[in-house]
Design a protein around this nucleic acid. Sequence first.
DNA 1: CGATAATTGAAAAACGATTTTCTTTATATG
DNA 2: CATATAAAGAAAATCGTTTTTCAATTATCG
Lengths: 355, 355
Amino acid sequence: MEKEMKPIGIKDVAKTAGVSISTVSHVLNGTKPVSDSLRKRVMDAVEELHYEVNMVAKGLKSGRTHNIAVVVNSLTSIFFPPLLQSIQGDADRLGYTVTVFATGGELNKEQELIQMLKSLWIDGIILSSCADTADPANVSYLEELTDLKINGHPIPLICIESELNTRLDAVIVDDVDGIFTAFNHLYDIGRRHIAYIAAPFAYNTGKLRKEGYLASLKKYNLPFNSRLILEGDYTPVSGYECMKTILASGEMIDGLIAGNDQMAIGAMRAAMDKGLKIPEDIAVIGYDDNFPASLIQMSSINIPKEEMGKMALELLMRRIENPNASRMLIRLNGDLVVRNSTVAGTKSTWDLENW
Amino acid sequence: MEKEMKPIGIKDVAKTAGVSISTVSHVLNGTKPVSDSLRKRVMDAVEELHYEVNMVAKGLKSGRTHNIAVVVNSLTSIFFPPLLQSIQGDADRLGYTVTVFATGGELNKEQELIQMLKSLWIDGIILSSCADTADPANVSYLEELTDLKINGHPIPLICIESELNTRLDAVIVDDVDGIFTAFNHLYDIGRRHIAYIAAPFAYNTGKLRKEGYLASLKKYNLPFNSRLILEGDYTPVSGYECMKTILASGEMIDGLIAGNDQMAIGAMRAAMDKGLKIPEDIAVIGYDDNFPASLIQMSSINIPKEEMGKMALELLMRRIENPNASRMLIRLNGDLVVRNSTVAGTKSTWDLENW
DNA sequence: CGATAATTGAAAAACGATTTTCTTTATATG
DNA sequence: CATATAAAGAAAATCGTTTTTCAATTATCG
């Protein structure tokens, strides 16, 4: 025989405390002033019955679920976990819960998720979109995002990593400046023949990083050589292949910037396979400064992931408070982390040759 | 002037379709058979109005939110992301959302979270507890977990990584066997003086891994030497320090097992600092096979993280379906991954791909 | 001291679905 | 053809809160 125990609700508290239901609610939410004696009576009852407010019912009535959604490419990609951790931690402190979703980098999935989120009544979304903003086919989708409505009224959406348009709040990284910083570093240590293994141009960030490379050449008045800029696809393998191509081209290079750490690692392998010494023959610098970069003592441009998460949540909270706040863009700068792949002996030896 | 647009609800659909509210619900949920013509009329209205069911209201009525909570130590720890990814992906497919929480390894926080979850009306919990099951102080907490009730009736809870007691469903790793596998490998390649830098004994897993080491010695009839087993704290630094201690002790070792990859990495560095060659002088094997292990070509025992997540979710679904199902324990075995830190020239292919 | 204002408590109406109960209509059967 | 049975639609209760409305009590001040 199932004993179908009724959940203890606010009415039970009311009965135990000998007051009305609304009074309990007012005590709990501080909606109206109540006498101290009565407050105590209510709180005692709450204590005694182990009453916990039902957030679902509360959410239904108030229209606020205190739940936010974070939609990212992948939960494992080494880039997102720190971001996620930061968001979750702060949200927790603010009384919000975080529900996570992964798109796997597929726009279809992303759109499907956004659609699905509409039935969830979340209070806001932090989205790292994989939409190509340059593709005309996405224009209506981006429009929809900009004016996303759940439940009749607009729902706050914060973009991270990529600035979808000029109307959505966003937290992004200054990629042009980031690559420039990397270039600057290589130039400082005397390198003049610097190649670039690019992040995919299809993505906004890829375009900007390339721009940073070109701007750097211009600034230092160095010639542009199309054989020194190859497009990778973010994977170590592509970095490896690109580097092989560059080395086989007969071009002499003494410096390499990669569009991300993974490709940099692949490129280093390729160089070492050719018997080249790093950093003596070729100085290599990555981008993102994900954890493994420090492990193999590779120089990189550090993206402040925790900071990004923190800022994104702050923007989201701001917009939840005030839906009409003016649009805000936060552009963070990465900073240079010098390790052995550009300056030998920077830290204790820990390079790939040893393995 | 705010235009307070009303959300479109089931009643709007009913009006547009020219039927009653309940009929719409029945069509949408297939609760009762309806004529095809009417079903079409309703679906057309749904389509036309872009109606999305309100999961909050549905949750309130049905008692099912289709949301599960995953509580882990840290979202960045390199161990959890793959687990989380796996859980989230499968949950998504099953129509569940995943809300994540981090305890930071603090029992207080964990207990606070569990308490808080009670007001959330989630359908189930997957918990990687940081509670020391041996500590008498935790006995009442564990008891509470075993009989966790939300909203009057019991809520499914699945343990991962650590088997809290014999009544809760759990997905764990056979740590004794895992260390044994590692030992076996070192023995196979001719090592006879094998040290162990241990995972903290305070945790269950730490105890088991130590047990595995001791069992291995016994099996191969090797002498136990207390100076060859040191307790680390999971960090690379502790691995480094322990290794230094062992090397300074004057004991000659030719093999080392570490309780996790991080400590193994630290230990390798200590060995290399002493001018020792790996694997020639000392063969080193880690545990967990987290991503960096492949990066530096270190042998390790691979814990099937995705599989753990998958199984945990399956157990959870099973218990949601049938709260009275008999308790189920899934013990997964880790498998040996041989790389350069135990067998030179193993030169694996691109392990980097899954970065 | 009496009128006005300020507190406080109780009852009832939402919030947006599901689900039971009750009609009504269509179908099959003797 | 009448009756039993099945099918389909409508009305109303419910889930556990919040929040408005209104009534009752107490405090304030000329």
